[in-house]
């Protein structure tokens, strides 16, 4: 049997909102250690890697490893039926055809059950090589979302250049261009407002706006985002999910033709 319970469905609601633009379906790998998802978008340009540790759940039981193929659109619809304060329980039997989502209101007076058919999926796992990144930038997630949104008006791609001085985002298009520079914060009153740059070597990479704008749907999950970059390798854009895990997005760069 598989059963995982969260006291508040808000986290799972936010996770679904953070992946639904990129994925139509995904396999949820459930084991003793927790729930993992690794899935690429249809174009194989981006990859979502989600990790929810079993110890982060209020209750977690997984008698045997399960691979459950889920339709993300349906799952999103189901999660939207839960109030943020509802308790959510995921339940499946061994060799399941279905997964059950159970929402219980705080006062325990409303109990909702949604059963979703699982799908068989061809899995394509990619081995992500261990990489030491030339630049690792931590910055407020809302600021990153704002920059991606603002610069998307000017072009299809954003060039991110990171140096000791700071991080610069540039977009150029037919109607003009724009750039935004962020300096490392000298003194941040609050940790979550800080811009921190850990640089070994300067990096300059270009990425498609449309994927970045999908990644920033994870902004409600965490006040800070971590961007890891090296020359000519995919960007890693990471959001912590409370004490339970993280979501990482990988994005293949655009390179000179």
């Amino acid at each position: 049997m598989f059963e995982a319970r969260l006291a508040q469905s808000a986290i799972l609601k936010k996770v679904l909102e953070a992946v639904k633009d990129l994925l139509t379906e995904a396999t949820f790998e459930c084991s003793d250690s927790g729930i993992q998802v690794q899935a690429m978008d249809n174009a194989h340009v981006s990859l979502v890697s989600l990790n929810l540790r079993s110890d982060g759940f209020d209750k977690y039981r997984c008698d045997r490893n399960l691979s459950m193929g889920m339709n993300i659109g349906t799952m999103t619809k189901i999660l939207r039926c839960a109030s943020s304060e509802d308790t959510v329980t995921l339940r499946a039997w061994d060799n399941p055809d279905n997964i059950i989502f159970i929402f219980e209101s705080q006062n325990k007076e409303k109990l909702s059950e949604y059963e979703m058919k699982l799908i068989n999926m061809d899995q394509e796992h990619l081995g992500i090589p261990e990489t030491v990144y030339s630049c690792v930038v931590k910055m407020p997630s809302q600021e990153f979302a704002r920059i991606c949104k603002d610069l998307s008006q000017f072009g299809e791609a954003i060039t991110i250049a990171c140096s000791k001085e700071g991080i610069k985002f540039t977009a150029a298009g037919d109607y003009g261009n724009a750039n935004i520079k962020l300096a490392q914060t000298a003194e941040a009153d609050k940790e979550e407002e800080a811009v921190i740059i850990d640089m070994q070597e300067p990096v300059k990479l270009t990425f498609a706006c449309r994927y970045l704008n999908s990644f920033v749907k994870a902004t409600p999950l965490c006040a800070q985002v971590k961007l890891s970059m090296s020359g000519d390798v995919p960007l890693v854009c990471e959001y912590q999910i409370g004490d339970i895990g993280h979501i990482r997005y990988y994005l293949a760069p655009k390179i000179d033709d």
């Binding site: 340009v45 981006s46 796992h125 990619l126 081995g127 995919p234 293949a252 655009k254 000179d256």
Partner: peptide
């Protein structure tokens, strides 16, 4: 012009 790469170019199937 820049060309969009895919992840398969960087990551190997496992």
């Amino acid at each position: 012009a820049k060309k969009q790469t895919t992840l398969k170019y960087f990551f190997k199937k496992s």
